[in-house]
Amino acid sequence: MENILEVKDLCKKYKEFELKNVNITLPKGMIMGFIGENGAGKTTTIKAILGITGDYTGEIKLFGLDNRKDDRKIKENVGAVLDDMFFPEILTPNDINTIMKDIYKNWDSKLYFKYLSDFALPRNKAIKTLSKGMRKKLEIATAISHHPKLLILDEPTAGLDPVARNEVIDIFQSFIQNEECSIFLSSHITTDLEHIADYITFINNGNIILSKTREELLEDYGIVKCSKEEFEKIDKNDFIQYKKSKYEYKVLIENRKTFSKKYKINTIDKITLEELMVLMIKGEK
């Protein structure tokens, strides 16, 4: 499988914060979810990938091309949605079409207007009159209408109601019906990612602490809930982290199947991304 995005040893220093050796590999045809707390480095990483933030060390390749050398070729094939809207608020969706036509060789006005009507967005109203959810949908329609091969989205579902989120996820899934296309998206709403993401990459405090397939994390990994006595019998090598609470121990394990063969503990559940995040950040070894 060829990789559409490769980040190697990306480092970037700020006064109070540092990205340390960030490595990301995203194959063609796949969706990667990028999760982490606020301030963990998600947006900084995304901005470096998009070439918005320069002056980092390490290497970033998109479609096998160096992000610093082949900037123009890369941009034509990337669609991005960032946290902050990049259009002046007095413009209308119609104006955006006029502008984008001149920017992208492959801009597809027909497709763009189709998304506008799918999303029930008005063509002639200024952006400033649109609700937060409508703006987000407009940004997504704009990012996807020049037939990019890679979509990079920072919190694309934030601020959307469940119905709109559903529509957006549908668009993402139809986007990767083409095996040449991939999506890299960060999200707080981990339930959105639990189903559709093929890979999950977890960043904490500027470090990538986990990057695995959805299958490994959400099906093989598990959470053991047990008593103190039971916990004390578990070998240290057989778990990743644990968290103690008043009535139970929550223990993060790598493989439910092998664990349940070795230990007779009744509650070995699948894990949600939310639980995983909490146990990785707040748990101890």
């Binding site: 045809g29 796949m30 969706i31 996820i169 549908d170 899934q173 139809s174 990767i176 019906q177 095996e179 189903h195 559709i196 993401a197 093929d198 890979y199 397939t213 959805r214 299958e215």
Partner: peptide
């Protein structure tokens, strides 16, 4: 694989597995 993934709203990897 891709069609089924979309119809079931699950990841491509899951269907592939």
């Amino acid at each position: 694989i891709r069609n089924l993934a979309q119809d079931l709203r699950i990841s491509v990897m899951t269907v592939k597995r």
